[in-house]
Amino acid sequence: MSASAGSEQILHENTLYAEPVFHVGQFPITNSIISSWIVVLLVLVLAWSLRGKIKSVPRGLQNGLEMVFETFFGIFDSITGSRKRTLQFSPFVMAFFFFVLLNNWLGLFPGFGSIGQIVVEDGHKLFIPYLRGATADLNTTLALATIAVVVSHIAGVIAIGWWKYLNRFLNFKVLWEIPQKVIKEPTILLINPIKFFVGIIEIISELAKVASLSFRLFGNIFAGEVLLASMSAILAFGLPLPFMFLEVIVGLIQAIIFAILVLIYLHIATAAEEH
């Protein structure tokens, strides 16, 4: 390495996106997908360790999981209003919880964002970490939010039928009502077009759901990483500790919020409501 290159500053910035560490063919292996694979592996190992050990008298991991489940069942019951619906939705909702939680917390481990390689790009030396919290990558959160919203629509169609469900968004029923009832109550001429537009607004709100779910999680976790990096830059010893605790709590809270929002979307989509 030449003297001029050695004196050059290594760019050490927190990017909004996850950097590819290497490519497999056309597929970019980013640092965030590596860490999400670690999470998948972790879950697989834990599930493997649970295999055949689920007993009536709980022990170890089963005990902890039961406590988590029981707590969530209580919260979910207050949202769904019935234990039956809670049990229907919880496997899906808790998968979100565990996936998001493990990714959030894994991103706080030492080595994340700090161990990496130096790549020369446009004449600059860029530091690319090998690992990055998976939820600090919009690809992950967008994927999660899309699954959540899509599944909530599928559940809605299954629960109340496709025609009824379609009428929530493209309300043909109210349009059809206009010629039928217009003589009896002329005000319908004014009200039903409004109802139809409300349905169209619902479509936009569904898109907003995806955006709000994905950006909330991404924003919180990414901001946490930036915050920790900044604090470490000021003073690496001791100073980031309180913020680390804060991020642990934020990671948990964001996971809970994500899971509960998914449950609420599912609940609203499957509820046979009448406005």
């Binding site: 980013t30 496997p91 899906f92 565990f98 996936f99 690809n139 992950t140």
Partner: peptide, 17 residues
Amino acid sequence: KLFLAQLINFAIIFFVL
């Protein structure tokens, strides 16, 4: 591709859990 990969990751987590 990354989006899809994360979808698959979530699907695995969901089924395993």
